[in-house]
């Protein structure tokens, strides 16, 4: 896979109907009667390119990496059928809490994004937003064969085939569905990577941001969100 990081020609969102109505430029009346012009895309959303997460060396960083590995907070976003095997992990039989893995309901507080199975284009759009809102260092687990090469839905007009074209993936787990144990093994592998300081896909995403963005925009036809959602 060749990743071109030349600043590609990212189409800037200009078309009006691609902007969600609540994000359109408009004039609002303030309670005191004065008119204020708001441009939500520029006012509310970050316009700056993200920065890479700096990996330092040394004992402190090692300790921090250990802490990061032992405290994986998973975003509760079931993107596909894989979400059926995530709940068993928080229940008595498999109990992933004992490995320091927890579910968090909001992307801001999560480190791990499990893409559980196939991603339809409509979900991909949300997944990108969720992913970008997660604070670095962050990790993506691709669950099931759908994330690797399309899986079951390889010929569907609405699901993507290769997740790594749109989001950086740290660990893949084969299966359809993978057993919960396979997921636990995936977490173990991810921990191993983090402890070794190798789970750096989030930085790769930032380094190749233009490539990823171009891929994303190619298939998301109504890109009515800001370019960056950090």
């Amino acid at each position: 896979m060749e990743k071109e990081n030349k600043p590609q020609d990212i189409p800037v969102v200009k078309t009006k109907n691609f902007i969600a109505p609540e994000n359109e430029k408009r004039t609002v009346t303030a309670p005191d009667g004065s008119l204020i012009e708001v441009d939500p895309i520029n006012d509310y959303f970050c316009q700056e390119r993200p920065e890479e997460y700096k990996v330092k060396s040394g004992a402190v960083e090692k300790f921090l990496n250990w802490a990061r590995a032992e405290s994986l907070w998973v975003l509760g976003f079931g993107t596909g059928c894989g979400s059926i095997e995530i709940p068993p992990l928080v229940t008595p039989r498999f109990d992933m809490y004992r490995y320091g893995v927890q579910m968090r309901p909001t992307p801001r507080q999560s480190n791990v994004f499990i893409i559980s199975g196939y991603l339809s284009v409509k979900t991909l759009k949300r997944a990108i937003r969720s992913y970008e809102q997660m604070p670095s260092p962050k990790y993506v687990i691709g669950l099931g064969s759908c994330t690797i090469n399309g899986g079951m839905y390889w010929d569907s007009y609405n699901t993507i085939n290769r997740l790594d074209h749109y989001l950086p993936v740290d660990v893949y787990i084969a299966g359809c569905m993978p057993r919960p144990e396979a997921l636990l093994a995936g977490f173990a592998k991810l921990k191993e990577l983090i402890k070794a300081g190798k789970a750096e896909k989030a930085n790769e995403y930032i380094r190749n941001l233009d490539w990823y963005k171009a891929n994303q925009k190619k298939i998301i036809k109504d890109w009515n969100m800001p370019d960056y959602n950090w």
Binding site: G142, N149, G175, R179, A182, A185
Partner: peptide, 12 residues
């Protein structure tokens, strides 16, 4: 056997 974890998608 059901566990196959990899970092490289080409491995599968």
């Amino acid at each position: 056997e059901y566990k196959w974890i990899a970092t490289d998608p080409e491995e599968f």
